[in-house]
Nucleic acid binder design. Structure first.
Lengths: 136, 136
DNA sequence: CATAATTAGGTTTATATGCACATAGTGGCA
DNA sequence: TGCCACTATGTGCATATAAACCTAATTATG
C-alpha cells in the first residue's frame, strides 16, 4: 500500500504542480500558506502538526517562503517558540494561485468521479490517523 | 485532496521506514528492489514508468543501491539504454527486509481495517491512472 | 543514404523530507 | 534557589523529488 500511496502522491503532486505553475507557487508552498490563512499565526511546532510534516522539514520550507516575503517568523511570548504569520504579500500569492488550484481540483474530480473522490478523501483521513497511532 | 494525499504519504512512509529500519533499507529502496525482483532486468525508463517516478529521480535512487552492490547497471543492446538488474546481494537484502515490510503492512491493515484498506488500495489505483491522463 | 524527429539517458539546480545531535528557554521539585 | 526534565527550535547529513538543459543513439522520412 505504501507503494501505491507514494506513487499516487507523486502522480497527483505532479498534476497540481503543473496547474499551479503559472501562479509561481509549488504545491507544498501553497498548502503551507493556505493553512496559515485558515488557522492564523502559530508556532512552528503547531503548524508542523497540522501539516503532518516533520518539524525540521517545515523549517526548511518556511525559509523559502520567508525569503519571498510571503510569511514572517518572529519570537513568541514563550521565547523558545517562533511564530509564523502570513504577510499581505503571502495572502495575495494564495489568492492568485487559488483558481489554478481549483482547476487542478476540478480536473482530478472529473477524472476520478466525485464518488471515488470523496471515498478517497475519507480513506486518506483514516489512514493518516492510523499511521499516527505509532507516535503514542 | 493533494494535501491529504501528501500528508498520508508522509505519515505512512514514516511508519514503513520505522519498521524497515532494522533491515537497513529505506522504503524507496525496498520498493525499487522489490519491483526488480518481480519484473526482472529492464531499462531505467521502463522502471521509472513502473514506479511512477521521474526518470531523473530514479537515476539518483539507483546510484545509492548500486553503490551498495544491490543492483548493477549495464548497457543494453540499444546502446542508448542502460539495463538495471538486481544482484544476489540485492535479493538477499529484499529477503531480509520482507518480514519487516510485512509487519508494517500488518500494522496498517490492523489499524485501518481490511475493508478500508482494500477500498483505499483500489482508489489509489484509480487515482494514479487519473493523474496520468495529463501526459497525453 | 542523409537528415530530421524521437527516444534514452546524464547533469545541474532547486525544493522536499526527516533523523541525529546540539542549544536554549520553561517549569517543576527538592 | 538550584537543578533536572521537558519542550521548541536550529543545523548537519543523507535521501527523495523533479524541471531544464545537454548528449548520444535510433528511427522515420524524403
Amino acid at each position: 500500500m505504501c507503494f501505491n500511496l507514494r506513487k499516487a502522491s507523486r502522480a497527483v503532486t505532479q498534476v497540481y504542480d503543473e496547474f499551479l505553475r503559472p501562479g509561481g507557487l509549488r504545491t507544498t508552498q501553497f498548502s503551507l500558506l493556505a493553512m496559515l490563512v485558515g488557522k492564523g499565526p502559530m508556532p512552528i511546532r503547531t503548524l508542523a502538526d497540522y501539516m503532518v510534516m516533520d518539524r525540521t522539514t517545515l523549517t526548511r520550507n518556511l525559509k523559502l517562503v520567508e525569503r519571498e516575503g510571503l510569511v514572517t517568523v518572529r519570537a513568541g511570548d514563550d521565547r523558545r517558540t517562533r511564530i509564523v504569520e502570513i504577510t499581505e504579500q503571502g495572502r495575495d500569492a494564495v489568492k492568485q494561485s487559488l483558481p489554478f488550484w481549483q482547476d487542478a481540483q476540478d480536473f482530478m474530480v472529473r477524472e476520478l468521479g466525485s464518488k471515488t473522490w470523496s471515498a478517497l478523501r475519507a480513506n486518506l483521513g483514516e489512514t493518516i490517523s492510523a499511521a499516527q497511532t505509532t507516535n503514542d
